[in-house]
Design a binder for these strands. Sequence first.
RNA 1: GCGAAGGUGGUGGAAUUGGUAGACACGCCAGACUAAGGAUCUGGUGGGGUAACACCUGUGAGGGUUCGAGUCCCUCCCUUCGCACCA
Length: 881
Amino acid sequence: MSYDFQAIETRWQRYWAEHQTFRTEIDRSKPKYYILDMFPYPSGDGLHVGHPEGYTATDIVTRYRLMRGDNVLHPMGWDAFGLPAERYAMKTGTHPATRTAECVANFRRQMQRLGFAYDWAREIDTTSPSYYRWTQWIFLKIWGAYFDEALGKARPIEALPIPDDVEAAGPKAVRAYRDARRLAYLHDAPVNWCPELRVVLANEEVAEHVEAGRTVVRKPMRQWMLRITAYAQRLLDDLDTVDWPNSTHAKQRNWIGRSEGAEVVFSVCGVEGPEGALRVFTTRPDTLFGATYMVIAPEHPLVSQITTADRRAAVEAYVRKTARRSERDRQAAAADGDKTGEFTGAYAINPVNQAKIPIWISDYVLMGYGTGAIMAVPGHDTRDHAFATAMGLPILEVVSGGERSVQAEAFPGEGVAVNSGFLNGKPTPAAKQAMIGWLEEQQLGERTVNFKLRDWLFSRQRYWGEPFPLIHRPDGEVVAVPEDQLPVTLPDVDDFNPSESGEPPLAKATAWRELPDGSLREVNTMPQWAGSCWYYLRYLDPHNAEAPFSREAADYWLPVDLYLGGDEHAVLHLLYARFWHKVLFDLGYVGTQEPFRRLIHQGLILGATYLPRDKRRNEEGEVVFFMPGDVEEADGQWTVRATGEPVDEQWEKMSKSRGNVVNPDDVVERYGADTLRLYEMFMGPLEHSAPWQPEGVGGCFKFLKRVHALMFSDEGLRQDLVDGQGSARQRKLLHRTIQEVTERIERMQFNTAISSMMVFTRDLVGKGEPPPKGTLRCFTLLLAPFAPHLAEELWAALGNPNTLAREPWPEADESMLVEDTWTCVVQIRGKRRAELQVPANASKDEVVALVMGDTTVQRHVGGREPRRVIYVPNRLVNIVV
RNA sequence: GCGAAGGUGGUGGAAUUGGUAGACACGCCAGACUAAGGAUCUGGUGGGGUAACACCUGUGAGGGUUCGAGUCCCUCCCUUCGCACCA
């Protein structure tokens, strides 16, 4: 009976489904373990072999932990809102819900063919009303909360203290006071609007559309924002409590971007009152004596007030130009170091030395960071230096220690203060503290912390997303849809395009939007991130109709013990989910500060394409490439089979547009799911990216065939299998294999765990001794997490009536790991010269005597007296002569 | 520029606390069985050297510590990925 993987895999997949083998419930008698995969967006292209890499890894851990007796939660679902389904609807007229259902069905079918141990009873879909009902519910909790600075946490908006003067001004004032402090608030924010497509683009989408020749303009729109900045410090601090990759820690830190410094008040000459106070943020208050001019952002509210008549035309032209320029344009110019700007005609007084310095506007100062205004210290800031040089502004040295003159080059490093009055002679850190102290004393400024993190633009002008459960009253009041009326479902529409003016598609669903009392529903939808911000919570209690999840389930399962997914989500998804989790923690819905205890990013699986040397493009302007089937290789040179044209091999992330996708269905068809799983894990460390090499798959297939042949011959179950644990050598190897595989699973080093099993199998086959059943029994259990279908087949053939999924994991017998002898490597002056077997119980002196008696050793020592002998038990002897 | 991760055979990759560099697999070479092999099995395979040994050499480059360095320290070089006018 040959290895009929198709029959085997079908049989066991049906068995697991029928017996609900991987169904999970709360069980307080066992340790819990929550293993989570980042759930996929079910695209129309289906899975490629990159997807199952992470899923296989978590599946191995799941099956291993089950056998270790843990209660494991391992769910799967679909992140199914998003633009592709909506674009597809615009093109074909197919409703996004229909399309999404098709794609989900295909993804589910492909995944189930791989035999993953998911509890499919917990499957979720972010687009299902029974799911997004609770996404809306959580949004209302966020909208209904404010951040209490004193307590450092969110509280219900009803708890917000209302100042007496606001109270006295009436309910409208109270409402405005509250609305301004909610964690979800309305704000006029510029968006990337593409008039051709009538779509608002995310920042990261702008580049591709501009390249495709479309226009993208900045356009102010009323947007919902989430006050993630209130959590900046906690999001930063709590990173220390999670076991995540360094790179991800670093990316989040960098994104949050905390910097310490001071705010300093400059007064604008000739402008009285509060308008005349120009606040700047600086991380280098010690350089205040070197401020020779100021720059404010073109969008700064003070610009029009302070600009003098003779400068007005130039300044207004510059402001208009900046407004039109896309973010991308500005960044491109920034990369070249070009600095532009205009003088406002106004002057400010430097509070530390009363110097009168000019105020400029320039787009290198960003309205969104700090106060939107800076004091420019060209001697010690490279950007200010470039600007001062371009505009002919004076440059002063106030910190010594630079290698070149500050006239030639800014010195941004630390040194000793000079030309700085009372700071002179102080090293930079001390000078900073002294200046902050002085500013606070004079009430001219104070110590401040600033973050790069901005509030989260949370609304999208699209159809295929969660509707906001909010209603705009005719008087402008915004009220929540009552909880018992959730979900606010998406109306059926035929036209998924936004209006020409940029109104979202839902604005056209007037019957849905307009309510009898003249109120209007909110017509923006939530971004795709919303559903993924809390899906790991819904898995805990997916059928709960009263709440998103019970506190009991949260307390039992949280936090996620192992979270696996690509590092493309290192910042946004993980930061947003942490933010929501903290809000839910503050409001008492979950009991942990952080959702994901341990995080691992799997690497990419790369696909090959072959590029002509001339990098030519076809009529549509696309790069011409060839696929693996079109080319052949000889002496390291690839050529197109049909034409003989030389081409270069290129490995890239798999994507349909690059034509380098490998479909797991094809691999399963030819080799089976167990082989695919095994190869994906054998390719290398989980975190590494690696090329997909079809020949390698064959190697893993051969291994499984060899394993199958341990128990089955052409005639069926082998009759020559012997009882018991086999020879002493076989037993020793088995226990070493148990030990290695166990250790390597624990360390998630699956490639080397597989290598151990290969060594074991080769030995069992190669020595010609009939395989002992006891040995096979243990080995089958070791194999189970990696190749579960074949393992179940072997397990049944060994006479076991039930699944091995909860069979206890084999324990290595310590006494079997002890060897009688060890290989002693002999080094002479550090160079390896010989090796010999020595008895395990030999003492140092005995080993050294044995070594010195060896003929090879004697030849190298040549009668000289050893000056020193280093003895490392179980390893080596090094003789120094 | 800043930050992070890396650099080991033709390829993917192994190598506890410093202790046999190249496990395992692909590819390649040779052989076996075959009508045939893109099937299967056996052996070989870092480079140089040899009839075969011996021996020499070798983990991006150069230095250092050590009896001993892929691993530790210093100085460089290169690759990939993030972020990027954040004051």
